[in-house]
Amino acid sequence: MSFEEDDKVIFRDEYHEKDGEEGKVVQVSETMFGDETYTVEVDDETIGGLGEDQLEAVDG
């Protein structure tokens, strides 16, 4: 699943203090290999360089 800017997501990273919290995609970038990386804002903290596997869609 790919995400777009302003999509609401759940951030998943068991080693990060914001793991499991809801945020929103603020930027979508493409790597030179054609993969998408995401920058997400969670509680006024911006977390960049995220892969699709670190995000979960929020219904609604």
Rank of each mutant, 00 (worst) to 15 (best):
E14N: 06
Y38I: 09
D43I: 05
V26H: 03
V28T: 12
T46L: 11
G34R: 11
S2F: 10
I10E: 03
E22A: 13
T46W: 01
I47F: 02
D53M: 08
Y15I: 04
D7V: 01
E4I: 10
I10L: 04
V58Y: 01
Q54E: 09
D6P: 02
E22M: 11
G23A: 09
F11Q: 00
D43C: 02
G34V: 07
D7I: 02
G34A: 13
G20I: 03
E22N: 07
E14I: 05
K8I: 01
Q54Y: 08
K24G: 00
A57K: 13
F33W: 15
G34E: 12
Y38S: 09
V58C: 11
D43K: 14
D6Y: 14
D35M: 10
G51T: 00
T39S: 12
S29D: 15
E21G: 01
V42W: 11
K18V: 05
E5M: 08
F3N: 02
D53V: 03
G48K: 06
V58P: 04
K18I: 04
D35F: 13
E14T: 07
E30H: 15
E52I: 10
S29C: 14
K24W: 04
T31Q: 12
Q27K: 15
D13K: 02
E45S: 07
E30N: 15
D53Y: 14
T31G: 11
F33G: 05
D43R: 10
M1K: 12
Q27H: 12
D59S: 14
E4N: 13
E4C: 09
I47E: 02
K24Y: 06
A57D: 07
D6W: 12
V26Q: 07
E22G: 07
D6R: 14
G60M: 00
G48T: 14
V40F: 03
E4T: 11
D19C: 07
D53S: 14
T39L: 07
D35W: 13
G60E: 00
M32R: 15
T46M: 05
E4P: 02
V26P: 01
D44K: 01
E45F: 03
I47D: 08
E4K: 15
E30A: 15
T39K: 14
D6A: 08
V25L: 08
E41Q: 08
E5P: 01
V42M: 05
Q54C: 04
H16L: 09
V9I: 08
D59W: 02
E41P: 00
E17K: 15
V9K: 06
E4L: 14
M1E: 14
V9N: 02
L50P: 00
T37P: 04
T46V: 12
L55F: 06
D6V: 01
D13W: 05
F11I: 10
Q27F: 14
R12Y: 06
S2N: 15
Y38T: 10
E41V: 06
A57S: 09
K24L: 05
E21H: 07
G20Q: 12
G49F: 08
G60I: 00
T39N: 05
